[in-house]
Design a protein around this nucleic acid. Structure first.
Lengths: 201, 201
DNA sequence: GTCTATACCCAGATAGAC
DNA sequence: GTCTATCTGGGTATAGAC
């Protein structure tokens, strides 16, 4: 991978996009929908419109491909979150924007769903990018809450790290509730309930 | 199933426990660890120490067995939660006890993990007990919070349904964060952060 | 009720031709 | 780089004997 050095455009797995790129994107998508155990090399090949030999030429197998896909998804998630985190509003505003960001709730979280995949959690190489992504989100939220405390947005007694974990958990748990209910409603309720708790001070 | 009518004891899949019972319990355990797609009939048979023919005699197949196992797990979860919910403390005390209950955090939630199983979410029969379990938990929490409001434990502005969703979400999301980190710490942080937010009023 | 045999297809990968 | 052939094993179930 990375053998060729052309720039890669976004949007669609158009024919001319390199095979490696299509393989990674397809794997990302399938991991999201079906998880690691539920995703077969054959399914990846079909989604990527690549042959058996092609896939095994670029990747040693399913695990290596999954590693690339999970790392890619982690980078994308961080970058999407940073869009809200790096805004210029108050801490409360930025956190609220992050929480209320438009999301495909019923699809769930690409990273979060991997935590219920035994083969991913068992393999340190596959778990690492999942771990790092959530560590990053929590530490980023911790920083923002600490800022908010300095600006007197939050009470002095508020623990930034704990609160950050709570916020991250509400998002992940919100997805779970929404999928169970097959409706985004519980997700929205959980988010708004949290925003109220954070704002009520 | 239920063909015989002897009482069934708890604890261990002892030899004399009926085959059906061992099959259901083994399936519960495997669904928890590996999910639906990751669990094969053969694995169930081995865990239950039952033969191929035996399993297919009692159940039409994997799906029917999973249905029984998920329903059983749902009943157990509700019953475990009701132990805290039905206590005689204040609303805050009962919710705190529920949140701080001893849990095998790194195993995650048996119900919650099923929401990332595409074959479970797709099949209405399998999703129903998952849905009902979370609906029940949320509505039970809603009731308790409403009680708490009447007793002036919570501010009049607090929305019981939203807050209940937030609480349920923190638990589910806490599991996700803990498994990603391979440590119970983020779970504990998320829980304590929530308790602070609920108590700070 | 439980056993063994059988069946068919898929998972995951390797080998060597082109 | 990509293709097709091939391989071993497992998933999921049915059939019929005991």
């Amino acid at each position: 991978m990375g053998c060729t050095h052309r720039a890669v455009p976004t949007g669609g797995y158009s024919d001319w996009v390199e095979t490696v790129e299509r393989l990674i994107r397809s794997t990302q998508e399938l991991l999201w929908e079906r998880g690691y155990v539920g995703t077969s090399p054959k399914a990846i090949q079909q989604a990527a419109d690549a042959g058996q030999g092609s896939m095994y030429h670029h990747f040693s197998g399913k695990a290596e491909l999954a590693k690339a896909a999970i790392e890619r998804s982690g980078a994308e998630l961080r970058s999407a979150a940073e869009e809200q985190f790096a805004g210029d509003g108050s801490a409360t505003e930025r956190i609220t924007q992050y929480l209320r960001r438009d999301r495909d709730v019923l699809k769930g979280c690409r990273m979060g769903r991997l935590t219920s995949d035994p083969d991913v959690m068992t393999d340190p190489v596959l778990r690492a990018p999942v771990d790092e992504t959530f560590q990053w989100i929590r530490s980023r939220l911790t920083e923002i809450i600490a800022e908010g405390k300095q600006n007197k947005e939050y009470p002095a007694g508020l623990d930034p790290a704990k609160t950050a974990a709570t916020i991250a958990a509400v998002l992940q748990g919100g997805y779970v509730l929404a999928r169970a209910a097959n409706s985004p409603e519980p997700f929205d309720q959980a988010i708004e309930g949290l925003i109220d708790l954070l704002g009520a001070k």
